[in-house]
Structures are given as structure tokens and as C-alpha cells.
Design a binder for these strands. Structure first.
Lengths: 215, 215
DNA sequence: GGAGCCGCGTACCGTACGGTACGGTACTGG
DNA sequence: CCAGTACCGTACCGTACGGTACGCGGCTCC
């Protein structure tokens, strides 16, 4: 199927092979352990492969970074958003689930490091890692939350005009200043219990703002 | 007063001289115009000074960056928080004022660039620019907002237990995902009108959550 | 078993950039 | 008029790192 060996240019456009995934995992590990001064030499050493192979597979340093971000993004997308029977309690549960998941992600070491890379990159233009991170983070979860909000509105549990605005308020209530503080190096380690509490508070506040007053 | 000329080490610990301020402004300009690939050569050229002087004044590249962040921070702290006659309307005005100011700052090109630098630095440890930015951004505004919130509570207009939590909710409602999106390179340019609208919405929501129901 | 390819290890190249050295000029104090 | 100081401009050094070249072992396919 894949035109693998015919072309000289076989940089990774499609899904990475198992060996390539191992390389990308090495990059992630290196990124998490060391700060972000990731060198190609270090990657090659860590992944036990040659730099030449690295360049053959990923083109250049940017390509490697891009592939890494994509690879990480591909493992996060595991959301169960089946079901459509929506009562007030399940609506709340769904929102709570999103909030917990979101906080788990942004508080994770990997997310912090990858966001740092993408942000640093956004400064020196070229190859928008920022766009990729944005698309796979905020936008992806937005695409899954907004339908739930709209279903909630259709069922009469929520009131709002613009689902995007409502969603962004939700994000604000959940994330608050956590992400920027982590990115700036604030210690601030959230354990699972605190995340659950934060998420619950955010959902309560969101419902207080957008929910119908219980008659 | 200042032991200026006696010591060979006269790196900038206190307030920068006029000439030094000009250099720091050059750094800021360069940072805003070019991406963050700020070189010492470029700074020297732009500021019409020699690299040697740069190193004499600021120690090394990190010192220059730190001084720049401090310098920028020193101009933002111009908040009028006098007055204490607090009725419901002035409370709302004060919060609105904070919200607008905050959005203005974080949406500004300078803030974005400086945060990018600090975040990139937070990755490769050494010299916590992140801490400085945090202290002069979030913490500084927190120190000014929380007394207002507490005064509002004392006057019976607000209800909350922890002012820090209330403040962070306020920040979340105001900032939402704006800062992270800008840092990641999202276009998203807010004009003054939109900022005012956003701020007003956030304040309304905050008062809806924490304000006493008007009897 | 040989031809050919893949990929590891390593040595190598070019360059950009942080940091230093040095000569030249203007100003100040004696 | 002569030190001394401050600072500009520029040339220079060292090194880290992105990217390339090459030799060698192990695999598959005839």
C-alpha cells in the first residue's frame, strides 16, 4: 500500500513505523528529563540510531519535533463520547470528565515540555508547531465539548447563545492560570485529588452560570 | 550613595541609568520586531554600543534578559488603587478596570514576547526568568486585586472563603485561553472594543458567582 | 554464497553566536 | 598638556550543534 521503498524521499508523512515510534518516544523522554536543549546527537545516542537515519526519516530538526508533537497528540485522542441519553446528571458527569481529562493533560510533564517547545518555536516563526499543538489540544477538546454543550441546551439544561463563548468560559474556569504558571516553571504540583476538586468546582461554577435554575 | 565607581563589578543591580534604559528598550524593540533569536551582536548594533559594554553592564546574556524583564515590569506597575469608599458600583468598576488592564497587558506584543522568552528559559533551568515574570505579572496583580475582593466581602457585596481561590477564578474568567493561544502563535488580535466586552462579560460572570443576590 | 540495502557508529564540516581583546576617540580632573 | 576613564567599533577566539560523508555489520533476496 504505502509507497515505501520506491521514493528516495521517505520522510515521515504517514504513521511512523515501530522503530520510528521508538525514536519519537526517546525524544519525549529526553525532553522530559533534560530541559529542552535537545540535540540531535543526544537523540541519536538515546535512541541508538545514527544521526543520518534521523535526517533521512525526519528531514531536519524541525521535522523531528513536528513528528514528535504529532505522535504525542495521537495518543491523547482516546475519548469516549458515545451515548446521547442526556439528563442533568449525565451532563454534569460529562463535563466533569472533560475537566478532569483536560487538567490531567495540561498538568502533565509531557504537555508542559511540548508546549514550551511549541511556544519557543512560535517566536522564531517557521514550521508552526504552535498551530499543531493548538489544533490537537484546545481545538480537539473544543470539538468534543461543544456538541455536549449544545445537546445540553437542546435538552433544556443550559442557556447560551454562542457555544464557542460558553466553551471558552468553561476552559477558563477549569484551567484558570494553571497552564501559564506551569509553563513559567512554577512548582505547583497537582495531585489527582486536587484535580478532581478543581474540576468539580469549575463544573459547578459553569452550571451556575449557564445552567437553568432548578425549579 | 551608590558605590558606583569603586567596584570593578558594576553590573546592574539597582535601577538602570538612562543609557542602560536605552539599551534595554533596544532589546525590547528587537524582541518585538524579530522573533526571539536575539543575539548580543544585534543588540549592540541596535543600541549603538559595544558588546564589551553590554557584558560589563549586564554580566552575560541572561543578565541582559533579566534586566530587560525587570525594566519592562517596572513600567507596568502604574495602578491607581487609592480610594476606599466602596459601593456596589465602584466595586464593579474596580474589577472592570483590573480586567481591562490585565487583558491589555497579556494581549500586548511585548508581554507575549517576554513570556515566550521566560517560558523557553524555564525549560533549560538557570536564572528563573519565569519566576520574575510570574512575580511581576500574576502575583503583582493578585496583590492588588485581592484587597479589593476582601473589601467587597467586608462591605457585604461578595461571598467567598479564600480570596486566592476567588482571585484565580476571576483570572480564569478574564483570561480564559487567550494567553496560551497568543503564546502559541494564534492570530487572534483583540481590539480595544473586544477587550472591553470580554472584560465586562468576565466581571458580570464573576459577580454572578460570588456576588450577593441583590435583594 | 554473493549482491544489495538498511541502518548503526563515528568522524567530519560549516557556521552562528556567546564571550573577550584591543585600538581609537571623547571627556574629565589635575 | 597629560593621565585616567568610559565607551564605541571591530576583529578575534572557542565551542556547541545542525547537517553530511563514510566504513562496517547484519539482513533479505536471488
Amino acid at each position: 500500500m504505502t509507497p515505501s521503498s520506491a521514493l528516495p524521499d521517505e520522510t515521515v508523512h504517514d504513521a511512523p513505523s515501530a522503530r520510528q515510534q521508538a525514536v519519537l518516544d526517546a525524544v519525549l523522554a529526553l525532553l522530559v528529563e533534560e530541559g529542552d536543549q535537545l540535540t540531535m546527537d543526544a537523540v541519536a545516542r538515546r535512541a541508538s540510531c545514527s544521526k543520518e537515519t534521523l535526517y533521512k526519516w525526519f528531514g531536519d530538526r524541525d521535522g523531528l519535533l513536528t513528528a514528535t508533537v504529532r505522535w504525542q497528540a495521537s495518543r491523547v485522542h482516546a475519548g469516549r463520547d458515545a451515548g446521547s441519553a442526556l439528563d442533568a446528571a449525565t451532563l454534569r458527569d460529562r463535563l466533569l470528565d472533560f475537566a478532569v481529562t483536560w487538567l490531567d493533560v495540561i498538568a502533565g510533564r509531557t504537555s508542559v515540555v511540548l508546549n514550551r517547545i511549541a511556544i519557543a518555536h512560535a517566536g522564531s516563526r517557521k514550521s508552526n508547531l504552535g498551530g499543531i499543538v493548538l489544533a490537537n489540544g484546545r481545538l480537539a477538546i473544543g470539538g468534543r465539548v461543544k456538541p455536549v454543550l449544545e445537546a445540553g441546551r437542546a435538552a433544556g439544561f443550559l442557556t447560551f447563545e454562542d457555544s464557542e463563548t460558553a466553551f471558552r468560559t468553561f476552559l477558563g474556569l477549569v484551567g484558570r492560570d494553571i497552564q501559564i504558571r506551569l509553563l513559567l516553571g512554577d512548582a505547583l504540583d497537582l495531585d489527582a485529588a486536587e484535580i478532581r476538586r478543581d474540576a468539580a468546582r469549575a463544573v459547578d461554577q459553569f452550571l451556575a452560570l449557564y445552567g437553568q435554575a432548578r425549579p
